[in-house]
Write a protein that binds this DNA or RNA. Structure first.
Lengths: 155, 155
DNA sequence: TGTGAAACCCTTTTCTT
DNA sequence: AAGAAAAGGGTTTCACA
């Protein structure tokens, strides 16, 4: 789907606050309700807008600690990968999971309340999977976290 | 704010889909509209629910490439940190930014369309900041990404 | 493709148990 | 605290330019 500058504006606004009303959105982008509504609808249907979710305050649900886990493996078979992928994806504390280039094979972001809780997740990670090296790095402070993607490259 | 099991259920549902209607939410948690609405309201007011946003498909807005950037510095002064923090936070391609323990001082997640675009962000990162070492790792594949926090630790 | 107004449905309030 | 019902408001549709 091709995006024009009004679409980009709408996406920028909705990425920050999805509770905005159509009338307000319309005003911000210089349209009236109906055409604005139709555009937002198209953005949803086309899949550019993938989801509408609520973001929780990590501290208030007691997962203030972020750990980055770098995993190296010696086995590089398809079966191993599928198994690893399946088990890791199901762990709710793992909120991000990437296959990497370079010396680290996989990178995970894990959220937990404390180090003790992390140790349990760690054990679950290595249980049943042949991982040759796991290295955990703790985040001391989250300086920025946004779900808003940059829109300067959209076309 | 203390969360009971109904609150947890509501948070779980809204973390996945914030467009759910109060009537449907109410049914899922075994309440009628009014008390359900009041609970959701309380969750918003108390800040447990921090935001309601739309998530975009990264590929459809042309930022399919994720790069993790590990930054080391030799200077550890407060001024340097504030300056670095301020400049990095303002870069829209930087979607996550952590101060780390261990040998890496800062970790960034950057989203861009391609390597050429990353190079521009890289130059912006090192310009004006005395960083002693920057190491970039490219994600080949995003195996999991969720904004839904685990709720088993909430209390 | 944009406009204005009406219809509809969900949210929010009020009253009651 | 929870429920039922009514009031209020936003979204969605429709006819038209």
């Amino acid at each position: 789907m091709k995006l024009n500058s009004i679409d980009i504006k709408l996406l920028a606004l909705l990425q920050e606050d999805a509770t905005m009303q159509i009338a307000d959105l319309a005003e911000q982008v210089g349209l009236t309700q109906t055409p604005c509504w139709r555009r937002v609808q198209r953005l949803k249907e086309s899949g550019v807008i993938a989801k509408n979710v609520v973001l929780l305050d990590p501290l208030r649900v007691n997962v203030g600690v972020t750990v980055f886990v770098a995993v190296r493996t010696s086995i590089h078979s398809e079966e191993w990968f599928e198994r690893f992928r399946a088990t890791v994806s199901l762990i709710p504390e793992v909120v991000e999971f990437y296959r990497m280039s370079g010396d680290v094979d996989y990178l995970l972001r894990v959220v937990v309340p404390d180090i003790a809780a992390y140790d349990k997740v760690y054990k679950r990670l290595i249980a049943g999977n042949q991982v040759s090296d796991v290295s955990s790095s703790f985040a001391m402070e989250q300086l920025k976290f946004t779900t808003a993607l940059p829109l300067s490259y959209a076309r």
